[in-house]
């Protein structure tokens, strides 16, 4: 019995036979995937392979896309996130997202980082200040911005902006963080900081990162999933994928001998 309980709690996210379509275009073709809590999972694959679409299924960001349909279920903590009683806003507080290009709101740093609380109706000043400091510290940005919280977020550097976006996501205390190529627009130093951050955040969060940078995937992730033409070709421990991939397609892709 104890074993059964352990079994059901083993995975944070489970995808079951996901198919997705843009209109009649079949972009995800039957993907099953289990993701363990407190792990970093990297999604790799050529552009248009469906990895970003799959990522966005996890916080239902595809819902607004005209003509988008999907079949199959995604379970978060064993609950179907596409069930009719699920409030999508509630889901997104649980599953945060960081985008490819840093996208802070054109407001102050403080307003950015407390936005999530504001939309939940929290206005208590000390609560907001506490959360702002906590999440900025978590995102390793506090020391750099603590004296200019009132300054526009757009005045920050690209790397700082991206860490602000991470802090903003952390402020609402999600349990999963989706990152869509979070460092692709950043210089190597900022990239290193983001990667360091991912490594630290793993302690508390389940992280999924889409990346085109093979080295980044191999550096930060515990497990790697290789997508190709809407299919999950190979999914395994990162070490295994990068040292000894089982599928020739994976090998060709990661070693840059594609096509």
């Amino acid at each position: 019995m104890v074993n059964r309980v352990m079994e059901t709690n083993k995975f944070k996210i489970q995808a079951k036979d996901i198919h997705a379509y843009y209109g009649t275009h079949h972009v995800i073709k039957g993907i099953d995937m289990d993701i363990k809590p407190n792990s970093v999972t990297a999604f790799i694959g050529p552009s248009g392979c469906g990895k970003s679409t799959f990522l966005r299924l996890i916080n239902r960001m595809n819902d607004y896309i005209e003509g988008f349909t999907k079949t199959g279920d995604i379970l978060l903590d064993d609950k179907n996130i596409y069930a009719s009683n699920v409030q999508v806003e509630q889901l997104r507080k649980e599953v945060g997202m960081v985008f490819q290009k840093p996208n802070p709101f054109p407001k102050s740093i403080f307003e950015n980082v407390t936005y999530g609380l504001k939309i939940q109706g929290i206005t208590n000043k000390s609560d907001l200040e506490e959360t702002a400091e906590r999440s900025l510290r978590q995102a390793a940005l506090w020391e750099e911005v603590k004296d200019d919280l009132k300054k526009s977020a757009l005045a920050l550097s690209g790397g700082q902006q991206q860490r602000l976006c991470i802090a903003r996501t952390l402020a609402v205390e999600p349990s999963v963080i989706l990152m869509d190529e979070p460092a692709s627009a950043l210089d190597p130093i900022s990239t290193a900081k983001i990667e360091e951050l991912i490594f630290e955040l793993k302690e508390k969060y389940t992280i999924i990162i889409v990346t085109h940078n093979m080295q980044q995937a191999s550096r930060v992730s515990d497990r790697t999933a290789f997508f190709y033409m809407g299919e999950l070709i190979e999914y395994g421990k990162t070490k295994q994928i990068f040292l000894n991939p089982k599928k020739e397609k994976t090998e060709n892709y990661i070693s840059g001998r594609f096509g």
Binding site: M61, Y64, F99, K101, N103, F105, P106, T169
Partner: peptide, 17 residues
């Protein structure tokens, strides 16, 4: 920019917010 809208929605804001 769509990115701002996406960011807000991804934070759990409603369409109206």
């Amino acid at each position: 920019p769509r990115s701002i809208i996406q960011a807000s929605l991804a934070m759990g804001a409603t369409r109206w917010q």
